[in-house]
Nucleic acid binder design. Structure first.
Length: 827
DNA sequence: CGTGCGTCGATTTTT
DNA sequence: TCGACGCACG
């Protein structure tokens, strides 16, 4: 992982210009221009399939190779973990770069890293935990109940949405414009929610962003430090940034007109902005161009993905949107096949037609895995799944629950969180009576009242409950306490195994009818933790960078050889003062919150890919089916009626961009279909074809069912009849049964093997062996300047990476980076 | 305190 | 149609 790449190595590198020429070899003129732009604010308008990721990664590689910046001076921001990983992978294949020290990651991942390094300044506990949307919602719900508010009027989900939305706009409770009584109450809840999170030591996703933004805003010395450090900031999918994310970027880069403004390199495509509904501001692109005086917007319009007919369709469609930055995709690949359009009599018939075409494509050499069926909303997948299942075609559905979102995994994580921090009320409530311990709603309510009265956590308030209920609660507290004590000094694996053996989750699921899968997932959690230990920065390469004396207190230094992986969701920046680092458990919990895990089960299997159009963004396939192109569905009726949703802009235009995204996923063949009748919410609806058909060029289309043919005639029916004769009892994937199929339970392909990280060598973990250099031993008494006397519980890692868990009694057990912390053995 | 039944509501989603 | 969720009952 770590190849030498510092300034000396650079100087010694053979002829940088020759190297950079090789690097730039395969670029077209526009790409080349973008990659080699001077260090100034830049906006790259990158069309679908125009080599966006290549430009981003080559830009970084070029900057490094030509010595314009060292790895530590680069920040690259994405929205998804997947994109971040891909960027790093491609970068490292391009250049033997030491990724350590580079800040490549998601917005939230980088915020986490930043806040971990400056937790004191940010007024957070060092091991603050991140809560997901669900946790945040249940916290709000609790508050609404506690405040005796009407849940009809203050719907928890909506209130949570209000809070997140306010944060995304950079507004604290005091900044919200109170127009009416209702808003006043919402703000009151918002304030109470903030207090509660602070008390519990948890932050939600929006808080990660807002808190780090405010930290930079309010601390000039910190701001200057980071501005000196990050000279190049590259942003992917810039059209998806919200207000806060843009403000955050400006904080890191410097405001326009200030000195030392970093080179902000924004890559995006306004035509692919499809997340307005969650606060994305396409307008950020135009704002950025104006505010930072971007000299020349570079457009990447040459498409390397699709044939002409496909691109003609995309171009013609998107031309119906107003206020675009303006861009036209072109290819040198020739027109290719026409876009085939099919009119089905019913959703059922549409699915049968799909099967026929998919099989035809396979016969002509296109593998299943290269075929994607896209739809606007998830509900549409049912019919299609059912048809594929009956036809014995393997398929995979994207979306759905990811590993760390599964109920049983969340329960296990809640126990782990309580071990780490018993005052985490959200986790407390989740598992205090799961599995059942005879602690009912009544007891919990009493406890909550007591906690509220004293302003303390549930855990701390248990003693205030008397009687049988109090005894049972005390029993639960003891369970947590005992685990906390017993796991002190244990490896992550041992901690999880002990927890599972103690809390009774496994036994509970053993008695459940369909509990076996859940038990397997719990066992999988151990593997996930092991994988984390080796992959995410706790392995042999991890930890401890030297402290920069000139840096502000608690800040990080220029990256040194020991800085954790650029991608590590959690890094172990030791506190500059004490050398204290995050415990492996706390780090793993953070990882679980920040990266919900894959749902890309069986990625290697040759199966048809089913997903929403949103989920398809960024992917490409040889053949693409866009289904359900009906008025009301696609474009969706809610979007059409909606008078400019949150992100501003026209709902219909966003639907059109969505269609544009769908079209541009196809390499060779594109199919579109719509149904005359469709079963929706238990009712048969009669639809007309999507208005988008009127916006596509006739010359690029081929109607499989002649347009004038009416209901019930022609191909559609023939397909249906043909299918009815030939199908029904085809071979079936997976279970070999044809009955009892249920979407969602789909035994065939989608659900089965989620998240199976590779097995790993267990050697490194619990080495009680004496690590070279530091001369410490397990059980040894040591002295620390801040924490005083302590006993060494655990030793891990070697050399620069060496770390120890030390029990300081009154101060508790702490993890220390030995390269930083000064520990003196006491005889 | 757990189960069963009725009501309600149903774009899109990453972190 | 189907699932999540709240409430009433045993």
């Amino acid at each position: 992982m770590s190849l030498p790449f510092d300034d000396d190595a650079l100087a010694a590198a053979p002829s940088p210009s020759a190297g950079s020429a090789r690097l730039l070899d395969k670029l077209n003129p526009e790409q080349l221009e973008a990659v080699t732009l001077p260090a100034e604010p830049a906006l790259i308008l990158a069309g679908a399939g125009s080599g966006k990721t290549r430009v981003l990664t080559t830009r970084i590689a070029w900057l490094l190779q030509t010595g314009q910046v060292s790895p530590g001076g680069v920040m690259a921001v994405t929205f998804t973990n997947k994109a971040a990983k891909e960027m790093l992978t491609r970068l490292t294949t391009m250049l033997p770069v030491n990724a350590r020290g580079m800040w490549i990651g998601t917005f939230h991942g980088l915020c986490n890293r930043f806040l971990r390094a400056h937790w004191k300044m940010a007024n957070l506990p060092q091991s603050f935990q991140i809560i997901d949307t669900g946790d945040s919602q249940s916290a709000v719900k609790r508050l609404i109940k506690a405040m005796n508010l009407d849940e009809e009027r203050y719907v928890p989900k909506q209130v949570a949405w209000f809070i997140a939305g306010s944060k995304d706009d950079g507004r604290r409770p005091k900044d919200v414009d109170i127009k009416d009584v209702h808003t006043a109450k919402l703000v009151e809840i918002y304030q109470a929610y903030e207090d509660q999170c602070q008390r519990e030591g948890v932050v939600d996703f929006a808080e990660l962003m807002l808190r780090s933004y405010e930290l930079l805003r309010d601390h000039p010395e910190l701001r200057e430090h980071y501005r000196r450090r990050f000279r190049h900031i590259l942003v992917d999918e810039f059209q998806d940034t919200n207000r806060l994310q843009y403000a955050w970027l400006r904080m890191f880069a410097g405001q326009p007109g200030e000195r030392d403004v970093a080179a902000l390199f924004a890559v995006g495509d306004d035509d692919q902005s499809i997340y307005g509904f969650r606060g994305a501001q396409v307008g950020n692109m135009a704002d950025f161009e104006r505010e930072y005086h971007v000299a020349k917007v570079i457009k990447l319009e040459r498409n390397y993905r699709s044939f002409g007919n496909i691109l003609d369709s995309a171009n013609a469609l998107i031309a119906h949107n107003a206020g675009r930055l303006g861009k036209n995709l072109r290819t040198e690949a020739g027109p290719g096949e026409p876009v085939r359009v099919f009119e089905a009599t019913s959703d059922f018939a549409e699915a049968q037609w799909l099967i026929e075409e998919i099989q035809q494509l396979v016969r002509s050499g296109t593998r299943f895995v290269e075929q994607a069926v896209l739809y606007r909303s998830n509900a549409q997948s049912r019919v299609i799944e059912s048809a594929l299942f009956n036809a014995g075609i393997a398929y995979r559905v994207y979306g759905g629950l990811r590993f760390f979102e599964r109920a049983e995994v969340k329960h296990a994580l809640a126990y782990l969180r309580l071990i780490e921090n018993p005052n985490d009320d959200t986790s407390f409530l989740r598992v205090v009576n799961f599995p059942a311990r005879g602690i009912g709603a009544r007891s919990v309510e009493t406890l909550q009242d007591a906690a509220r009265a004293s302003g303390r956590s549930l855990y701390q308030s248990v003693s205030a409950v008397s009687g049988a209920a109090g005894a049972k609660l005390a029993g639960f507290n003891k369970l947590i306490d005992d685990l906390h004590e017993a796991t002190r000094g244990e490896t992550l694996r041992m901690i999880i195994e002990r927890m599972l053996a103690t809390v009774g989750l496994i036994e509970f699921y053993r008695n459940e009818k369909e509990g076996q899968d859940r038990i397997e997932n719990l066992e999988e959690l151990v593997n996930a933790a092991e994988a984390f230990v080796t992959q995410e920065g706790f392995g042999k390469d991890a930890v401890a960078l030297p402290v920069d004396e000139t840096a502000p207190p608690g800040s990080i230094a220029e990256p040194g050889p020991g800085e954790p992986d650029a991608l590590a969701a959690v890094n172990l920046l030791p506190d500059a003062d004490t050398g204290e680092i995050l415990s492996p458990l706390a780090a793993f919990l953070t990882h679980a919150a920040l990266e919900a895990g894959d749902n890309q089960a069986q990625a290697g299997q040759d199966a048809v890919q089913l997903m929403t159009v949103h989920a398809a963004k960024g992917l490409e396939f040889d053949a693409v089916f866009i289904t359900g192109l009906e008025e009301g569905l696609f474009p969706h009726e809610n979007s059409v009626t909606q008078i400019s949703s949150k992100g501003g802009g026209d709902g219909l235009e966003e639907e059109r961009r969505l269609m544009y995204v769908a079209i541009t996923r196809a390499r060779q063949r594109l199919y579109m279909s719509f149904c005359q009748t469709r079963m929706l919410h238990g009712q048969t609806r009669y639809n007309i074809k999507s208005r988008f058909f009127d916006e596509l060029p006739e010359a690029a289309l081929k109607w499989i069912t002649p347009k004038q043919q009416g209901f019930g005639s022609g191909y559609a029916q023939q397909y249906q009849q043909a299918w009815q004769r030939g199908s029904g009892l085809h071979g079936v994937v997976g279970t070999g049964r044809n009955e009892g199929w249920r979407p969602g339970s789909s035994s065939s392909s989608s659900e089965a093997e989620v998240f199976r990280p590779p097995p790993l060598p267990t050697a490194m973990a619990n080495s009680a062996a004496k690590a070279a250099g530091h001369g410490l031993r397990q059980g040894m008494s040591v002295f620390h300047n801040k924490f005083g006397e302590g006993v060494v519980l655990t030793l891990e890692g070697t050399g620069n990476d060496a770390r120890a868990q030390v029990n300081f009694g009154r101060h508790g057990a702490k993890w220390l980076a030995l390269s930083v912390a000064k520990l003196t053995p006491i005889e």
